[in-house]
Amino acid sequence: MAQSEITLTGRKRPLEKLIKLALFLASVLAIFVTIGIVLSMAFETWQFFQRVSVTEFLFGLEWSPQTAIRADQVGSSGSFGAVPLITGTLLISAIAMAVAAPTGLISAIYLSEYASARVRGWAKPLLEMLAGIPSVVYGFFAALVVAPFIRMTGGQLGLEVASESALAAGLVMGVMIVPLISSLSDDVLNAVPNALREASLGMGATRAETIKKVIVPAAIPGIAGSFLLAASAAIGETMIVVMAAGLAANLTANPLEAVTTVTAQIVALLTGDQEFDSAKTLSAFALGLLLFATTLMLNMIAMRIVNKYREQYD
């Protein structure tokens, strides 16, 4: 101790202090980004609500943001009811989840409980490849192949299918988020103690019974967390819906019709020429804030559930 006192008085090490401060600031950047997101969008959103009432935005059933050609034009402000966008987003996300939840969970079960090490070795990376492919590729494929295919098949069955149906976008999005669910669920299933597996099998339960009645129930919280994360990804997904879902703000629950989504509208509102202060431009930020708040909430809940679950089996 005596020795170190000498060095301490000998050198102040201001550089070290500076370095530590720099490291600290870098870690705080994440908080600034979050604050930046909230503030920038909150500011524009507040301006938007000067022009359009909150109730119209949240409960209005009609979405048609016109740009005024002349400022004094009648009806230049358009209507900004976000309900069709929200229902459209939910419809497509629900279709995606209807594809991804069973596929992802059952794939995870097969990989963690049945597959040999060899099958696992190639099937898992291939599945994860689905998550590595950029969404613009899925969007292209959805618009070019899947949507016409569904339209044609529907036509043969005598169904009226829109060329940009919610079903096509949702289906393709579902495949894209399969690996999100399967890899997280796989971790979660692997965390279930082997003792439970042995207990059940040791009583003469088949593997399927063990999985359905013991392992999956024990892993439910983690699985639910993975579903929530996937749902959040579906809600925030942009390129697939921009390319395959279109811009028709229909208020419908029919998956064969065209709907639009929050993200697709944000892109549509902010591409091309815009005056920065018009209600049309500002509405994109209000939609952005809505999107951010929703996905943030889903993620927080999901992460809390998953962490709780992890602690349980630590």
Partner: peptide, 21 residues
């Protein structure tokens, strides 16, 4: 928590941030 949440924010929101800021 902040970092983990940022990792799951939809990418388009970052686009809005970039545009505004």
């Amino acid at each position: 928590v902040n970092i983990n949440n940022l990792a799951a924010v939809p990418s388009i929101v970052f686009g809005l941030l970039g545009m505004a800021v």
